[in-house]
Nucleic acid binder design. Structure first.
Length: 838
RNA sequence: GCCCUCGUGGUGAAAUUGGUAGACACAAAGGACUUAAAAUCCUUGCCCUUUUGGGAGUGCCAGUUCGAGUCUGGCCGAGGGCACCA
């Protein structure tokens, strides 16, 4: 068998790829973007999968006549750089740039069709200068604010986290229990776009439903109304938000957050202090949340029921009421809300049913939240829930007791970080206490290189001179903001910068944005379903608000979220994790440690991670099997949106198959011409064309595992015809078509083969005819059970087919001398004869 | 607790308008070639049958239909998202 040296041809073709631009016609554009990586050190298999998928799409679109924008850059700010520099005494800038160099070299080994002239790095001052400019634009347009708030404080990272970065009460990176701390912080007013961010999801047809749903839940819109309760004996009102105003006649208490303004009156109360402390504790750990009892503090105050003059209801502080949602106060209707029910049981409060569950005799064991008719509710009686809501809200507004209101769960985006390795916030504090943006002419506000990362707290704040400045307009002394921006800001507009990465005057050239945006295909991990994608949508809408020229409402037209790359885990007898190269497999269920031959425990396949040591180094795989084989394997078997399991035998057999492909191409190039059998040639052409159609469609549908299965099939089919009486010309035409279809998957091998066949127009997708087949396979069923499959001419009628079948078919014996009651006939698909039951 | 998604051989999976279930591959077993091994190739892959062939079968139970992996209802199981959101 003729073998090929993948290392040699890959090197050769990668040189050519690096010079090649994916611009073709100047007529149709396609912006293909994969989420840019964080330069953590080396690329991992997740990157390989992400960028291979993107490369297939980019190359496919280019071959189909599109101008393709396919850039790459680096999400280069972030904590790991600081942590790394502390542990090995390397400046974050140097560490980051070294990593970028390594990963760039590794990405090139994959043979990606990336236009490296467009490369950007968010830690470059040329990039963050424009980010600071955008920040000022956002500020000037009322989209930035400064608020004193409780923040999520990560005691390990020593920084503030956004709500989204707190997972089950723990920091998303450090996994440390998050504390509550009051700080003055910068915010992007993302909530100003709550409605747009929600409604525009509807237009994103090219997004996975799952992601849209997650964002929808995250934004969390709910309808209801605000009701004012007056506090007896005080000239005070308590504002309450509810989505169930229809249950107002079932209200038996008010519950307030411990941070509610009314708590001011109880600050000296020892019991209240104890209660509040208890409240701050819950909500930190997962178990606490799940098992948290409904606890309250009785204020001994009462509120006037707005619709029942004779009724006063007790006011409690309760641990399950949150200050930062609604007004921090609720009315409790125990019969129809489970939390209220638990609370009422504990404190022996009244439980009044106001929605009938049709089992009126029984005492409630739990809250009834289903639909029913309103009872015990004066003028609402007899209505259903929706009618009652409408009527009571109208009544509340009429009597001036409150108003209709829509609430969102989404909160503003806190962006201040007390870190060094991030984009400085371009704001200054004057001596008179005012806070103003720096003059745009002073941008960029550069990060200082001389920094002591071991200083306590914020390194920029600890720098001796950096923060001291003057206000350009007034000449007055000023102090810089020493917080830096959340790195999610960096990635919220990089896709726009890619359209004109070297544009000096402004963040982007508007004409380029108008041409390339929106991104036609965005590809990345599902873990960014909420944070990154929501922030990017917000940024786009924000910029669109003050820059009317770009006329862009959504950044990503189509979104694809790929699955993770998994590998089984290994532990030795002491429970220590082991790398795959440290073990030796005996069979699929047992393995031993290479060093001392002791038993290894094989664990389930999990997402590759350094902490579990179940990683495979892509570069080693590329060196061993070739980039094409790695690409091929990572796309085969599983659909790209699902998790895949890495297997060494898988990549090795990918390599073997690609060798066979080369061998076949080689044999064809040396083949002695044969006399042609026109009929066989015709059949051959037709079948190959069927495969080409199927492969083309599968690429379009992002079903690359199917494409690869079809390549195996077309290879097996092709191979069978080499010794037949078919001319070299026909074989050559067809192999060229097949190899062209392989370019997106295995660009090195495919190009090498096309060179071998002296193919000229390698940048053009082959012509694929639609449905040329004249023969079809028809299923013959008796009473719905398939008895035979017959190969017949296309478009035959029911009568013609029945004639053929009753003459010669395996189904013949079933219908011979039988009465056929009914025939179901679907042209070119099935014929089903219904016989009487026997 | 609420919301969503998914259950097909030993494994990853095909079957994309209700019409051939298991394509394609991995693993396994047997065989061919070889002094031997590797590599390569072939066969097998649930049940009955020597074969021809027949039967069961897509988590479980019902239903709709000439026909259900696909549609409907209920149950069981797995995964993901949110989590005291009023």
């Amino acid at each position: 068998m003729e073998r090929i040296n993948f290392q040699a041809i890959e090197k050769k073709w990668q040189k050519k790829f690096s010079k090649k631009k994916l611009y073709n016609s100047g007529k149709k554009k396609f912006y293909c973007l994969e989420m840019f990586p964080y330069p953590s050190g080396k690329i991992h298999m997740g990157h390989v999968r992400n960028y291979t998928i993107g490369d297939v799409i980019a190359r496919y679109k280019f071959l189909n006549g599109f101008d393709v924008l396919h850039p790459m850059g680096w999400d280069a700010f972030g904590l790991p750089a600081e942590n790394a520099s502390k542990s090995n005494n390397l400046h974050p800038k140097i560490w980051t740039h070294q990593n970028i160099e390594t990963m760039k070299r590794q990405l090139k080994l994959l043979g990606l069709s990336i236009d490296w002239d467009l490369e950007i790095s968010t830690c470059d001052k040329e990039y963050y200068k424009h980010q600071q400019e955008l920040f000022i634009d956002f500020y000037n347009n009322g989209l930035v604010s400064r608020k004193e708030t409780y923040v999520n404080w990560d005691p390990v990272e020593n920084t503030v986290l956004a709500n989204e970065q707190v997972i089950n009460g723990k920091g998303w990176r450090s996994n440390a229990v998050v504390e509550r701390k009051k700080l003055s912080q910068w915010f992007f007013n993302i909530t100003k776009f709550s409605n747009d961010l929600l409604n525009d999801l509807q237009d994103l047809d090219g997004w996975p439903e799952k992601v849209k749903l997650m964002q929808q839940n995250w934004i969390g819109k709910s309808f209801g109304c605000e009701i004012n309760f007056s506090v007896s004996d005080k000239k005070k009102n308590i504002k309450v938000f509810t989505t169930r105003p229809d249950t107002i006649f079932g209200a038996s208490f008010l519950a307030l957050s411990a941070d509610h303004e009314l708590s001011a009156e109880f600050l000296d109360n020892e019991e209240f202090k104890k209660f509040k402390k208890e409240c701050n504790k819950t909500g930190t750990t997962e178990e606490a949340l799940a098992n948290a009892d409904k606890l309250g503090f009785n204020t001994k105050l009462f509120a006037q029921h707005p619709f029942i003059t004779s009724k006063k209801i007790p006011i409690y502080f309760a641990n399950f009421v949150l200050m930062d949602y609604g007004s921090g106060a609720i009315f409790g209707c125990p019969a129809h809300d489970q939390r209220d029910f638990d609370f009422a049981k504990r404190y022996k409060l009244e439980i009044i049913k106001v929605v009938s569950d049709k089992r009126e005799d029984k005492e409630l064991k739990e809250a009834f939240t289903g639909n029913g008719n309103i009872i015990n509710s004066d003028f609402l009686n007899g209505l259903d829930i929706e009618q009652a809501k409408e009527k009571i809200i109208n009544e509340i507004e009429k009597r001036d007791l409150g108003k209709r209101k829509t609430l969102f769960r989404l909160k503003d985006w806190g962006i201040s970080r007390q870190r060094y390795w991030g984009c400085p916030i371009p704001m200054i504090y004057l001596e008179d206490g005012s806070v103003v943006p720096v003059d745009k002419s002073e941008l960029p506000i550069e990060l200082p290189d001389d920094i002591d990362l071991n200083s306590k707290g914020n390194p920029l704040d600890a720098h001796p001179t950096w923060k001291i400045t003057t206000h350009k307009l007034s000449g007055k002394k000023a102090v810089r903001e020493t917080d830096t921006l959340d790195t999610f800001v960096d990635s919220s507009w990089y896709f726009m910068r890619f359209c004109s990465p070297n544009h000096k005057q402004s963040p982007f050239d508007e004409d380029k944005i108008k041409y390339w945006m929106p991104v036609d295909q965005y590809i990345g991990g599902i873990e960014h379903a909420i944070l990154h994608l929501l922030y990017s949508r917000f940024f786009t809408k924000g910029i669109n608000k003050f820059n009317k020229r770009i006329n862009l409402n959504e950044p990503f037209k189509n979104l694809f979220t790929q699955g993770m790359v998994c590998h089984e885990t290994y532990r030795d007898k002491n429970g220590e994790w082991l790398y795959p190269e440290e073990i030796e497999k005996i069979n699929s269920t047992s393995a031993v440690k290479k060093t001392d031959k002791t038993n290894v425990i094989i664990g389930a396949a999990e997402s590759m991670s350094k902490s579990k040591k179940n990683t495979i180094d892509p570069e080693i795989m590329i060196t061993q099997y070739g980039a094409d084989a790695v690409r091929w394997f990572i796309l085969s078997d599983s659909p790209p949106e699902k998790d895949i399991q890495w297997s060494d035998t898988g990549v090795s057999s990918a390599n073997k198959f690609l060798q066979k492909i080369w061998n076949m191409n080689f044999l064809l190039s040396k083949r002695e011409d044969k006399k042609s059998n026109k009929e066989r040639e015709k059949q051959f052409n037709i079948t190959i064309n069927v495969y080409l159609n199927k492969i083309d469609k599968s690429i379009n549908d992002f079903r690359f595992n199917v494409s690869i299965a079809l390549f195996y099939e077309v290879y097996n089919f092709f191979k069978g015809f080499i010794d037949e009486n078919i001319s070299n010309k026909v074989l050559n035409e067809n192999i060229v078509k097949v190899m062209k279809l392989m370019i997106p998957f295995t660009p090195h091998l495919a190009n090498e083969c096309l060179d071998l066949h002296r193919c000229k127009d390698i940048d053009k997708w082959p012509e694929i005819q639609k449905n040329v087949s004249e023969e079809i396979k028809l299923a013959v069923q008796i009473n719905g059970k398939t008895r035979d499959i017959v190969k017949i001419k296309k478009d035959l009628s029911e009568q013609e087919i029945t004639k053929i079948i009753s003459k010669d078919s395996k189904a013949k014996k079933y219908i011979e001398n039988k009465k056929i009651i009914k025939t179901i006939f679907v042209k070119n698909k099935i014929i089903n004869y219904i016989l009487p039951n026997q």
